[in-house]
Every structure is written in C-alpha cells, then in structure tokens.
Write a protein that binds this DNA or RNA. Structure first.
Lengths: 168, 168
DNA sequence: GGCTTTGTTCAAGAATAAATGAACAGAATA
DNA sequence: TATTCTGTTCATTTATTCTTGAACAAAGCC
C-alpha cells in the first residue's frame, strides 16, 4: 500500500530555510554541552516539525547515516528530549521533540552532569583518604586546600537542583 | 648563580599521591567543561602547590611539552584561574592558582559561555528574520515554536548571572 | 654586539571522538 | 516458514581536537 503511494515524509527533500535555521541553532547549542553535532541536527529537525517524523524521514532529510540516526535518537530518548509516538497506519516508529525545558534540563543533569559529579565525589574521597603528615612544612596549607575542594564540591551538588528549579 | 645551586622546583621529580589525586580531580573536572586535559593538569598542580611554580617547574613535574604549558597557562590566565606573581631572585615568571570560585566561574562564563550565547542570539535573529507565510498549513505551529525558542534563549540569558551569584 | 635565558607560536603528528554502513536481530506479513 | 520491513550494533573510516617540539622572538647578561 505504502509502496503505491509513497509517503511524503520519507522522500528525499531539501530543508526549508526555517528548518535549516533551527537546526543550525541547535547544532551550535549542543556543542556548548559537549554533545555530538548529529544530536543537534536531529533534535532541531524534530523541534520544528509539526508532524511526528519517522526514522527514515529523519535520515533522509538530514542526509545522515542509519547509525547516527539510531544512536542519536536513542540518546535523545534517554535524555527525555525525544518521544516515540504512535502513528496510525504504519509500523514505523515516529518521533517528536519534547519541548518542556524542565525535562530537557533534567535529562541533561541526570545523564551527563550527575555521573561526572559522582566521579568527582569518589576522587575527592580518595584524596581525603591520603594520610597527611601533620609535621610537614605546608601541612596547614594542604589542609586548607583540601577543605576548600570539599566546599566547592558540596556547593556544586547544591547547585544542580537549583538549576533544575530555575528551568521549571 | 642559579647554575651552581639548582632550584629544587625545577628538578625532575615525581608527583606525590596528594598532587596526583588533586590533578586527577581537576582532569576529570575540566572534561565536563569541555576543556583540554592539560588545563586540568596545570591547574590541579598549581592548586595544590604551596609555593608559586615556574614555567619549567610545571613542565617538568607534569612531563608535558613547552607548547602545552605555554598555551595552558595562557588560557588559564585569560580565565582568571591562574595569576602570575613576582618571585625575588629570578627572571622567570611564577604562577599561582586563583581559588576564588567566584572568579573561576566568572571567567568560564565570560570566555566560554557568553560567546556561544551570543552566537545563539545571532542565529535566533536570523531565524526570526525568515519571512513566514501566514497561509501555511502549520503557520500557527511554527509561530509557537519560534516563540518558545526565543523564551528559552531569554531564560538562559537570565540564568548566567544567577549562576555567577550562586558561586559568590 | 654576541650569548644565554625565557617563553610563544604554529605546523605536523598523535590521540580522541563522531559518523558511516554492512551485518545482524526481531517482528509483522503472507 | 520464508520474506520483507524496521531498527540496532559495532568495526572501520573520517573528522576533530590536543599535544608536541622545533623555529622564533624578546629581553637580560657579559
């Protein structure tokens, strides 16, 4: 059926100026966050698409590989930046962008920032476990610095919930 | 004179467990921020050094190249994360880590985030300048999305000063 | 002026991260 | 069951970023 009547979504077609502009915006955006360009492309396209897009539609319109599309969508789903929606009359998955800033920020904190923060916690615990020589010439200095590092770390831990709240 | 009495700072010497631990912490830290590892090494070493370190001391103790040392220190200075201090009896520059979180955060915002944010402003202005067809089937949708992108952007602009304040 | 010390710059190489596409697996169709 | 459709995985290729070290400048010393 769908062979007799090709679905427009999946035809190879250029991007409109609007689409290009929005994709460009997000490609720039994900760079700041240290994420691959393809994520920005996919999210940007979905963000400005009035209708859910199929896997193939994304791949065709962005002219990127299956691998990038698959992995990009997978990661965007774990972030909560993209949702899979049911579309009648097709087996294919269809995707839409999640546009609640709250969720996007939450996903990024959860998937990207917290793991690093926890890694930092461990490293700090390791440092704190190193035996100190109280007779060392600079013992007081070391003590002060380690204390400062711990303060920084705790403050960062308090910071993330605040970020989350700011974008809610 | 200094040839007869070699300065300890510049002798090749291993790193103590404490130094290694702190460097490791910062190497992990700068990764989150999307900065090169060598920056973390240099800042970490300076951070846990009771005395100002010379260019050569940094290079020798970290076993990194002159290029990395020079560029790393240069960038850390523009961030305000490292200061050059005068040390009597030597021509060499000596460096110390800046440990006011406020300044570090401020430098990172100024040098890394604001340029990206401004780039985003321009991209958004470009999008907003694209002529819209009010008769388009999805005109209302496009309008709503563009409006949302502008809201996100303005909120992010308000966010940075808040970050700065939180770490002051 | 010549020589040494100190640090910068930048082209080339090394290391890392991202994108590709072919092989694969699962599920619907027939 | 065989076949097609849909999407995933992962080794390889490609692109990007980081590091290196040699050549260079600038400034002090003799």
């Amino acid at each position: 059926m769908s062979q007799l009547q090709p679905v427009l979504d999946e035809a190879i077609s250029g991007l409109s100026p609007l689409e290009t502009g929005v994709i460009d915006l997000f490609v720039n955006g994900v760079r700041v966050l240290g994420l691959p360009k393809s994520l920005g492309e996919i999210y940007g396209l979905l963000c400005i698409s009035p209708e859910p897009l199929s896997f193939d539609a994304i791949l065709n319109r962005l002219q990127i590989s299956k691998g990038s599309t698959s992995q990009g969508l997978k990661f965007l789903r774990t972030l909560g930046a993209v949702r899979c929606v049911y579309v009648a009359g097709t087996r294919k998955d269809h995707f839409v962008a999640e546009t609640e800033l709250k969720k996007l920020v939450g996903g990024f904190i959860r998937e990207e920032l917290l793991p690093h923060l926890h890694s930092g916690t461990e490293r700090l615990e390791h440092i704190d476990s190193i035996p100190q020589d109280p007779e060392h010439e600079h013992a007081a200095f070391y003590q002060e610095r380690l204390s400062k590092l711990n303060v920084w770390h705790r403050r960062t831990e308090k910071f993330l919930p605040l970020v989350q709240r700011f974008f809610s």
